[in-house]
Structure formats: structure tokens, C-alpha cells
């Protein structure tokens, strides 16, 4: 009884609270999504402007892939060739750095979870740093490092090293190891140890138990970590910006170039394609995790 009386007294406060409780989330979701939706919708606009809708067209997409002068819109000289080359560069860098980072990151996660080595606690927290610090600090540090090391090598041996694919891959591996290690460790933390122990009891040696039990169980975590690493590598602009050389333009560097110079009208279409690509990547990784979750649920009902 006391509660209902007080509830009535607080009624007006509660109403205001409820309006706020709905209004702020609605406004925030609108804030997050309207710019992206506008970008996508206006990539089909029959005019380069984003102020008003003038009708549907696929011209901008056609320009990207065919590099022709569009009939209805203004003349364009969209650099299709450079776009494709930078996409290819991004895929190469992403592929190589993902493989290296996934291997090294998984090994580190296993070592932290299972092994004992000096300074384990310190190293474990050091591994979180590349995830937390702003990307510009890693980019600048590597820029200084490569410049000094390359100068020293030049002075000592006369060999002139330059920034390029090698430096970008090294930089991407440097931040991706941490992400992979974190994802794989969270998988290890939820893994059932009794299966491994059973394998040992049944006479398997350490290597056999690892290959037949641990690794297959860990696979969803490794794949999720690898996919995350690949996405981060494809998306990275700042670190790449500081470690790239001449002729190694990646897709984000290309987009940045477009935004900094005269923005071509095809930019909305390029952006839309990149948004679609990232939705597909996120979808795949969610599917992977979903299956992982279901399998875990299946395991627990068997126990």
C-alpha cells in the first residue's frame, strides 16, 4: 500500500522519466543511422548533390566499374584503375598480416592460458596496449622506428630499404596479434578441459591431444580472431598512413585521397559498396560465433 501511494506521488516524475527513457535512445539510433542511410540512398541519386532527390540512377556504380563518361551526369574521370589496385593491395596486406597475426596471436594465447614463463602477468597486460592506445601513437612510433633503422642500415651496408608492403604488413601484425590473442583467450577460457584429460587417460601424447582435441575445439575462436584481424587490416587508415610508401596505396588511403582532394561524385557509391562489404564480413563472423555458441550449448546438454 505504501508503495502504490508513493508511486502516485512520483507519477509525474515517472512520466517525464519514461519519455526520456524512450526519446534519448530513439534520437541516438537516428543519429547513428541517418548519415549512413542518407549516404546509401543518395548513391542512387540522379545528381551528384546530396541536398535533394532527383530520381534513381545506377550511373555512379557504372562509372566505378566501367570508368566511362556518364551520359546523364557530369563528365567523370573516376580512377577505376587506382581503386582496383588499392583494393588489391588491401587484400594482399590483409591476407598476409592476418595469417601471421593469427598464428602468433593464437600461440601467445595458448602460452598465457597454459604455460608458465617469466613476466607472464606483465606481458599479458602489455598485450592489451595496442588495442587501447590511439592508433596514431603506434603509427608514429613505427614511422620513427623504420626511418631510423633504414637510415642506419643504409649507413652501415649501403642497402637502401624503403617503406612499402613490408612495413605495412609488419605494422598491421603489430596491432592484430593483440586482437587475435584476446579473442582466442576468451574461447580458451570457456573450453572444457576434461576432454583433453580424457585423451591423456586414453594414452594420447601431448601433441596428439593438441591436434585432435584442443585445436579443433579452439578453431571457432581462431577463425573469429582471424576474421577480426582481416577486417581491422582492411579498415585501417591511420597506421597504414604512417607506414606506407610510394605505390602501396591501400583502399582506405585511396578513400582518404578522394576526400582530401576534389571529392568525386562516385564517392557515395564507393562508400556504399564498402558498407555492404563490412556488413557481409560482420554477418559471417556473427554466424561463426552463433554456431560456436550453439555447439557449446550442445556440449553442455550432453554433460
Amino acid at each position: 500500500m505504501i508503495r502504490t501511494a508513493r508511486a502516485r506521488r512520483d507519477g509525474s516524475v515517472r512520466l517525464v522519466g519514461r519519455v526520456f527513457a524512450w526519446a534519448i535512445p530513439v534520437l541516438v539510433y537516428a543519429f547513428l543511422w541517418i548519415p549512413i542511410l542518407v549516404l546509401v540512398v543518395f548513391s542512387f541519386n540522379d545528381s551528384p548533390s546530396v541536398t535533394a532527390w532527383r530520381g534513381f540512377t545506377l550511373d555512379w556504380y557504372r562509372n566505378i566499374f566501367e570508368n566511362t563518361v556518364s551520359v546523364s551526369g557530369p563528365a567523370t574521370n573516376f580512377q577505376t584503375e587506382l581503386l582496383l589496385r588499392s583494393l588489391r593491395n588491401s587484400l594482399i596486406v590483409g591476407g598476409i598480416s592476418t595469417v601471421i597475426a593469427t598464428a602468433i596471436g593464437t600461440m601467445f594465447a595458448l602460452a598465457v592460458d597454459r604455460g608458465r614463463f617469466p613476466g607472464k602477468k606483465l606481458w599479458n597486460s602489455l598485450f592489451y596496449l595496442p588495442v587501447v592506445i590511439p592508433d596514431i601513437t603506434l603509427g608514429v612510433a613505427l614511422a620513427v622506428f623504420f626511418r631510423i633503422v633504414f637510415n642506419a642500415v643504409d649507413a652501415a651496408t649501403g642497402v637502401r630499404l624503403v617503406s612499402g608492403f613490408g612495413t605495412i604488413v609488419i605494422a598491421h601484425v603489430a596491432f592484430n596479434i593483440s586482437y587475435v590473442a584476446i579473442v582466442v583467450r576468451s574461447r580458451l577460457a570457456t573450453m572444457n578441459r576434461s576432454l583433453e584429460e580424457a585423451a591423456f587417460d586414453l594414452g594420447a601424447n601431448r601433441w596428439q591431444a593438441f591436434l585432435r582435441i584442443t585445436l579443433p575445439n579452439l578453431m571457432p575462436g581462431i577463425l573469429a580472431g582471424g576474421l577480426l584481424a582481416f577486417t581491422l587490416s582492411l579498415d585501417d587508415f591511420v597506421v597504414t598512413f604512417f607506414t606506407a610508401g610510394v605505390g602501396t596505396t591501400t583502399l582506405p588511403l585511396f578513400v582518404y585521397g578522394m576526400l582530401k582532394q576534389r571529392v568525386p561524385p562516385e564517392i557515395n557509391a564507393v562508400s556504399t559498396l564498402m558498407i555492404v562489404a563490412s556488413i557481409v564480413l560482420v554477418g559471417v563472423s556473427l554466424l561463426l560465433q552463433g554456431r560456436q555458441g550453439r555447439r557449446r550449448a550442445g556440449l553442455s546438454t550432453q554433460e
Partner: peptide
């Protein structure tokens, strides 16, 4: 097992920060 990760992090993260 932890060595490759520690090595990479040391050479391409901690050392560069010290260089800065």
C-alpha cells in the same frame, strides 16, 4: 610458444615507442 608474440610486440611496438 609465447616467444614470437613477445618478440614482435617488443621489436615493433615497445622498441619503436622507446625510439620516439
Amino acid at each position: 610458444m609465447a616467444l614470437p608474440g613477445m618478440g614482435w610486440l617488443f621489436i615493433f611496438f615497445l622498441l619503436p615507442v622507446l625510439f620516439v
